[in-house]
Amino acid sequence: MTFKPAELEHFPGYYIRRLQQIAVAVFADETQAWGVTPVQFAALSAIMRQPGVDQRTLARLIGFDASTIGSVLDRLEARGLVTRSGSPKDRRVRLLHVTEEGVSLLKNAEPAVLKAQQRILEPLTPERRAQFMDLITFLIKENDELARAPSSGFPKEA
């Protein structure tokens, strides 16, 4: 008997991975002038919204692996975009703040980031864009605990 594998074209994970590749490529195309990755932008944005957040909480906020968020922050700190300071409550905890340079990058790059998001959804009608966002948000919320890096940004609804 000859084994015939299932066709990838029937796997939602295959399409999700492909869409993620497209999203990263479009993001890079639109934001190349600022030299920032999607994860770096997410980290800067989250720190800006919650100044003084610690690294572990930041990782949960953006759904990123806590063991590797430090290397993302190392690159942001080396560029002068964030600072890390000790916590007065726990010496092991590092608190994060966006520098003026980081604020400037966020402010200047945001229109390009928003354009990237629009480009990704451009083939869809406005109604289908809303439907897509509802469905993808639902799937992430319902399956978040299965992620290697669950996000605290998507609590399940009661």
Score class of each variant (00 low, 15 high):
68 T>N: 04
73 L>H: 03
65 D>C: 04
155 P>L: 03
98 V>S: 07
76 L>E: 01
44 L>N: 03
51 P>F: 07
126 P>T: 08
19 L>N: 09
82 V>R: 00
149 A>P: 06
151 S>R: 00
66 A>N: 14
116 A>T: 05
47 I>Y: 04
15 Y>F: 14
101 E>V: 07
7 E>T: 15
42 A>I: 07
39 V>D: 05
45 S>D: 14
119 R>S: 11
117 Q>V: 13
89 K>N: 13
28 A>G: 06
140 I>L: 12
140 I>A: 12
3 F>W: 10
83 T>N: 05
91 R>C: 01
30 E>K: 08
64 F>M: 05
46 A>C: 06
75 R>Q: 11
24 V>E: 13
73 L>K: 03
33 A>N: 05
46 A>D: 01
139 L>G: 09
82 V>S: 02
40 Q>C: 10
107 K>M: 02
12 P>I: 11
85 S>W: 02
130 A>F: 07
114 L>W: 01
101 E>H: 08
32 Q>E: 13
111 P>G: 05
54 D>A: 03
108 N>W: 07
87 S>R: 04
107 K>C: 04
69 I>D: 04
76 L>G: 01
96 L>F: 02
28 A>K: 08
72 V>A: 05
83 T>W: 02
15 Y>W: 13
114 L>M: 08
62 I>Y: 06
91 R>L: 11
18 R>M: 10
45 S>T: 15
26 V>A: 03
90 D>Y: 09
55 Q>I: 14
138 F>P: 00
61 L>T: 11
62 I>S: 04
123 P>H: 13
66 A>W: 14
71 S>M: 07
21 Q>L: 11
39 V>C: 06
17 R>K: 06
82 V>P: 01
24 V>M: 05
130 A>K: 14
33 A>F: 02
66 A>H: 15
48 M>D: 08
124 L>M: 08
94 R>A: 15
77 E>G: 12
129 R>L: 06
57 T>H: 12
82 V>T: 15
45 S>M: 10
45 S>A: 14
2 T>Q: 10
100 E>M: 06
86 G>F: 07
105 L>K: 01
64 F>N: 08
71 S>T: 14
84 R>Q: 15
74 D>L: 12
59 A>H: 08
90 D>H: 09
23 A>F: 00
94 R>M: 11
68 T>L: 00
22 I>W: 02
139 L>M: 10
138 F>Y: 07
133 M>G: 03
127 E>C: 02
136 I>S: 09
72 V>P: 02
68 T>E: 00
66 A>M: 13
18 R>L: 13
141 K>R: 15
54 D>L: 00
134 D>R: 14
124 L>A: 02
105 L>F: 03
126 P>L: 05
110 E>V: 11
